[in-house]
Computed example of a mutant assay.
Amino acid sequence: MKHLLMAALLMTGVATFAQTTAKTENTALTTPKREKVTPETQTQKLSEELALTAEQQVKVRALYEQEAKARAALKEERKAAMDDAAKEALRAKAKEDKEAFRAKMKEILTTEQFANWKTFKAKQPGTMGDKGNSKFKSKGGAIEKAQPGQLPKN
């Protein structure tokens, strides 16, 4: 009887310890949150990377603020869009906005700064940059998974 009681207590202790260990290993709880991207932080990072003048910093910040408002409006429109045609129109508008942003940035920055900006954007983690750094690549409309370490061919 004593042996049975000891075995039950031992099993209860092991099970309790295993549950507390599993909770601490949860990566969602231990992963630090990313900082919020604001026009101020974007301007500051760009200023440090490209050595912007004070005048350029003011223009770039205004451009980032304008882009953030446009992105928020597009996000709301995308939530409201129901059919595929509306979603495709919104995608086209987003692409036009991106090209307009790029053109305005080219006007603000010097030629050398603009070239450095393009490489800076391509290196940023979590963004597609100019290359479309995606783990998926498109072939004639069909999406195929790229091999690990391989970039899609454009």
Score class of each variant (00 low, 15 high):
Lys137Cys: 03
Glu96Gln: 14
Leu52Gly: 00
Asn154Ile: 01
Thr43Ser: 12
Pro39Lys: 12
Thr53Phe: 07
Gly13Arg: 06
Ala62Met: 06
Ala51His: 14
Lys106Gly: 03
Lys87Gly: 02
Ala68Asp: 10
Thr12Ile: 10
Ala7Ile: 02
Ala92Arg: 06
Leu109Ile: 02
Thr21Phe: 07
Ala100His: 10
Ala80Ile: 07
Lys59Ile: 12
Val60Asp: 00
Glu55Gln: 15
Met105Ser: 02
Glu112Ala: 09
Arg78Leu: 10
Lys121Phe: 00
Lys59Asp: 14
Glu40His: 12
Lys45Gly: 14
Gly126Cys: 02
Asp97His: 02
Phe114Gln: 01
Ala18Pro: 14
Ala73Cys: 13
Lys123Arg: 07
Gln57Leu: 05
Lys79Tyr: 07
Lys121Cys: 01
Leu90Phe: 04
Lys123Phe: 03
Ala7His: 02
Phe17Ser: 12
Phe17Tyr: 13
Glu96Leu: 05
Ala8Glu: 01
Lys135Ala: 01
Glu76Thr: 15
Leu5Gln: 11
Gln56His: 13
Ala89Glu: 09
Arg61Glu: 15
Leu109His: 04
Gly129Ile: 00
Glu144Phe: 02
Thr38Ala: 09
Glu55Cys: 12
Glu144Lys: 03
Trp117Asn: 02
Arg61Thr: 12
Gly13Pro: 11
Lys69Met: 11
Lys45Val: 10
Gly149Tyr: 01
Thr41His: 09
Ser138Asp: 02
Ala22Val: 07
Gly13Asp: 05
Lys106Asp: 03
Trp117His: 10
Glu49Ser: 15
Gln150Ile: 06
Glu107Ala: 07
Gly132Val: 00
Leu74Arg: 14
Thr110Cys: 07
Asp130Pro: 04
Val58Arg: 14
Glu107Tyr: 03
Glu144Cys: 01
Lys69Pro: 01
Met105Ala: 03
Pro125Glu: 02
Asp83Gln: 00
Glu144Gln: 04
Thr127Tyr: 08
Phe120Leu: 04
Thr30Lys: 12
Glu40Asn: 13
Thr12Cys: 11
Lys139Glu: 02
Ala86Arg: 13
Ala68Phe: 11
Thr110Pro: 08
Glu144Asp: 04
Ile143Asp: 08
Asp84Met: 10
Thr111Val: 08
Phe136Thr: 06
Lys121Arg: 05
Thr38Arg: 08
Gly129Ala: 03
Ala103Trp: 03
Thr111Asn: 08
Val37His: 15
Thr21Tyr: 06
Leu52Lys: 01
Lys98Val: 06
Val14His: 05
Val37Pro: 10
Asp130Arg: 01
Gln113Glu: 03
Thr53Leu: 06
Arg91Leu: 05
His3Asp: 08
Phe101Val: 00
